[in-house]
């Protein structure tokens, strides 16, 4: 397949090499080439945020990025959030607050929320809502998601990382 392009990128802290067609989106590469199916396809038009990943510190819709654009970039996906068998505080708080129902939007929300807390460890409710407005959830009405993010931020500010009791 001479029409494939060689790409080297950093995915969740590890160097990854892959071949992809120029027309393949980063979302398609992550899911179908690399087997990272945590990012979900909800719309392919950048409207729902289910495919959110962090590239070089910025949250983006991976359906709007080409796979070849990953060359030399640093990419974080939901699969990289838990470390050493410990859930990220956001993951833990999503569980404790019942911030997911069907769960299809959850990876995107977690990634977008991580990008928010990475740059603003003490967001207001409005700032959380603003930061997550690019992620659609049809199940929860967002109430418990926003609470989970605010609670996770508080825990992270307090220096408590990893799993905490329910």
């Amino acid at each position: 397949m001479a029409n494939k392009v060689y790409v080297e990128t950093t995915l969740n802290g590890e160097t990854v090499e892959f071949l992809c067609e120029p027309r393949q989106s980063l979302l398609e590469v992550l899911r179908d080439v690399l087997g990272f199916t945590g990012a979900k396809e909800g719309c392919l038009t950048g409207d729902c945020g289910a495919c959110s990943v962090i590239i070089d510190g910025r949250v983006v819709c991976s359906c709007l990025v080409l796979g070849v654009e990953a060359q030399g970039k640093t990419i974080e996906t939901v699969e990289g959030m838990a470390r050493d068998g410990q859930l990220h505080p956001l993951q833990q708080k999503f569980l404790e607050h019942a911030a997911l129902q069907c769960g299809i939007c959850t990876p995107g929300f977690l990634v977008a929320a991580k990008a928010l807390l990475d740059r603003n460890p003490n967001p207001t409710e409005h700032e959380v809502r603003y930061a997550l407005a690019g992620n659609l959830c049809r199940c929860t009405g967002y109430d418990k998601i926003v609470r989970a993010v605010l609670d996770a931020a508080a825990v992270m500010r307090g220096g408590t990382h990893g799993v905490t009791g329910a």
């Binding site: 939901v78 859930l87 999503f94 569980l95 997911l100 990876p107």
Partner: peptide
């Protein structure tokens, strides 16, 4: 099923 759903 929560952990499976928050870890992708």
């Amino acid at each position: 099923d929560g952990v499976d759903k928050v870890t992708g």
